[in-house]
Amino acid sequence: MADILYNTSAVIALIAIVLAGYRSLKGPNVADRVVALDVMTIISISLIVYVAALAQRIIYLDVAMVYALISFIGVIAIARYLERGL
């Protein structure tokens, strides 16, 4: 029962990634694409934690943490770049 619930939520999160990816491909300007990419990375963090629980590997949680750090710094860097160039 619990497995079905967890797997269903993972599938719903995957659908969400596909929707955000549509916006990131179509987005009329660069800010739209970056917002969509930000949402995609945050959903990916959730999915990495799901995979960690599925495989029973605590070390995968560190992967999720580093991924969160890098996505945050990446978005900040892109915002800086848009504002006044590198």
């Binding site: 619990a2 619930l5 269903t8 939520s9 969400a16 929707l19 955000a20 969509a36």
Partner: peptide, 29 residues
Amino acid sequence: MAVFGGIVTLIGSVFLLLGALGIVRMPDV
């Protein structure tokens, strides 16, 4: 306990889907 956790996870994934849907539907950045 695991079933309760599964329900919470399901609600969370629905909110993730709503966020992605909002990204597609809203008119400006």
